[in-house]
Simulated scan of single mutants.
Amino acid sequence: MKKRMVMVLMAAMTVSMLSGCGSKGTGAPAAGEARTEAADAGDKKGDDTKTEAPEAVEKVSIKFGNTQGEEDIQTKSLHEVADRLSKASGGGFTAEVYGSSALGDTDDLTEQAMQGAAILTISDPSRLASFVKDYGMLQMPYLLDDYTQLDKIMETDLYAKWEQEFSDQGIWLVTSNWFSGTRNFCLNKEVKKPEDLSGQRIRTIGNELCTSSVDAMGAVATPMSWSEVYTSIQQKALDGAEVQTPSFYATRLWEVCSYINKTEHFQLIGSAVTGTKFRDSLSDEYRELFTDTFKEVGTEYQTKCADLSEQYEKEMVEKYGVTINDDVDVEAFKAATAPVYDKLGYKEVREQLMAEMK
């Protein structure tokens, strides 16, 4: 009897416990709990409504190649462009800089760009004259008084015509206002007048404009790759080079040439060029950013280049014994090169440019 009573009591307690557990686990939640869950659900729904997918950043990459060393003002300018493009695009527009002919010579890079490669190089009017003859006139000796006139050239109708003529051949002429310095005759002797260059084998750019001008100034024009100049002078295959101070310094030519003769015959203009295929692949926004950045850096670095040239010349005089010869009859060199304008057919286009710039 007692045993039966105990079993009944145990069964009753078990049912009671199960009922209590069922009320807590399966019944309706307390009012506070219900409000919390509803609020959580509402918050989650609200978050989903407010969150928007970030806009995709346009991705573009290009390689900048040139023939100059890392210390040259042109290479430094290319690095500046690359940095500004990256910052302005939030990392979407990336450019890698390859100096010292790492990607090839200037003409090779121009051809690659025309074929559609994402490559830009800094050429010059004398090289690009093979595509648009009259444009080459910008590199003629003693055309400009100084670099401050470069930006003005690009405002002329004549320049706009040249841009279109390049585009028709697959070349995007991004800008022509880069300044790499004033070219002088650098060798191991003093040069005051054209006669002093007689018989001197002088490296110059390998096109008719440059060779004709250097020959007219009395030297023996000797085209060759810039990367070969140092060794050629060292081995006396060359007597010197006509070159701007930043490149003279960066290439350490002061180790093999003791004189910089300030003839200042060429204002070396930098022409940033790539292909129209690359241009046409860009959005309007990126195309404008690309063009504006190159032009802005070009203008800013004109003065920097002039200042850097003075700094380099002072250092080379004090540390390396280079002689800066300012005692040059510049008028005699101007007179010697004047006939080259007629010879190459640039007399009329020169007059047109000067008239439009005024």
Rank of each mutant, 00 (worst) to 15 (best):
P125R: 06
S126M: 04
R127I: 10
R127C: 01
R127D: 14
L128I: 07
A129K: 08
S130M: 14
S130G: 07
S130Y: 13
F131P: 03
K133N: 15
K133G: 11
K133Q: 14
K133W: 13
D134R: 07
Y135I: 02
G136M: 03
G136K: 00
G136C: 03
M137E: 02
M137I: 01
L138C: 04
L138G: 02
Q139L: 02
Q139G: 11
Q139N: 12
M140T: 07
Y142A: 11
L143Q: 04
L143H: 01
L144N: 05
L144M: 14
D145G: 10
D146K: 07
D146V: 04
Y147T: 04
Y147Q: 13
Y147C: 05
Y147D: 12
Q149W: 10
L150C: 09
D151A: 12
D151R: 03
D151W: 07
K152N: 14
I153N: 09
I153R: 05
I153P: 07
I153G: 04
M154L: 06
T156P: 05
T156D: 03
D157I: 00
D157N: 14
D157Y: 00
D157M: 00
L158T: 14
Y159Q: 01
K161L: 05
K161H: 07
W162N: 04
W162H: 08
W162E: 06
W162K: 06
E163G: 13
E163A: 06
Q164A: 12
Q164S: 15
E165Y: 04
E165R: 10
F166V: 10
F166L: 09
F166W: 09
S167K: 10
S167F: 11
S167I: 03
S167Y: 12
D168Y: 03
Q169A: 09
